[in-house]
Nucleic acid binder design. Structure first.
Lengths: 168, 168
DNA sequence: TATTGTTATACTCTATAACTATA
DNA sequence: TATAGTTATAGAGTATAACAATA
């Protein structure tokens, strides 16, 4: 949230950012929340997301973009609608995202030759480079998670996937 | 997201809502994302959150409010700053939230007698009732998660807590 | 008729900074 | 000086609906 761009920056911020919230441990009684997986799911995701944003934000990269770029790289020529499905968002959400990528020269867009309604998305070399950066951050970040959850990672991911797949 | 209020509604919506996204399974290659716990953490939380929103939204309750109300109930007289800490948000985020509660008569706010800067928050009977509703939804919702993760729930929550606590 | 993508619009959630009133 | 709470403001993220072009 509120990062700045790497080359193509707009509103560069001094990076200050850093705990405003989460200063103290909540000494409050959580009640029923204690037993709800959903509650901790939220907390964990929130913490993970912020930590990753901190890491990648230093390089001007918005965390939400990561998955999209990754998917484009692994699926060159993918359409916007397909991308939207892959990240589980509406297609109207993808439009500004793609425009941002185009402005930053991270992605090339061509009109499909088989279906003139749709466009194909592919990474540019710059896009590859940025994604490489991001990937390193993601790896670093995930190593922290690894350190926290240890050898149960596989099982942990399996459960997360199951939740993501079944809860719709 | 975008629910309507129960009694105090403003912009009542026909509840239509219901899959627009997540229609098809992504047939795309996820690449490195496959191995990242953070990625699935996001997906799982997203799915869980939406499912809960669907459930509670039918009764005009925003999912984000649940934890706040719960904490107020279990900690009557809690201050806004303390509440902010408990839900890991900035105090400025809590102000409109509390105002909403006051408008809906879910919470009573009194000036603290020991510290005239701060306010004490307590649930009204209506607040208790609404929270009771929410709790039933949360339980139903969590039962679904239970069904998905089975007997590993305890361990699963333990890992989520650990991530939430350590990744800051 | 259905789908791709865009646009207009709106709403939620969140934070920072500046402020006040207390402490 | 520091803290509790408010306000003004801003930005990310997302969605719905209506639309044009194409299938």
């Amino acid at each position: 949230m509120s990062q700045s761009q790497p080359e193509t920056q707009k509103n560069q911020q001094p990076v200050r950012r850093r705990r405003t919230v989460r200063t103290a441990r909540p000494q409050v009684d959580l009640g029923v929340l204690e037993g709800l997986a959903g509650f901790y799911l939220r907390q964990a995701q929130d913490a993970s997301f912020r930590a990753f944003a901190r890491l990648s934000g230093q390089h001007g990269l918005k965390p939400g973009r990561f998955a999209a770029l990754m998917i484009i790289r692994r699926n060159p020529g993918i359409s916007q609608v397909a991308l939207a499905r892959a990240i589980a968002r509406d297609k109207s959400t993808v439009t500004p995202l793609v425009q941002e990528f185009l402005e930053q020269d991270l992605v090339i867009r061509n009109q499909s030759k088989v279906d003139r309604r749709s466009f194909t998305l592919t990474l540019t070399p710059a896009g590859e480079a940025v994604l490489g950066e991001l990937e390193r951050h993601a790896t670093t970040h995930d190593r922290k998670i690894d350190a926290i959850i240890g050898k149960q990672k596989t099982e942990f991911i399996r459960l997360l996937r199951k939740i993501g797949d079944h809860l719709r």
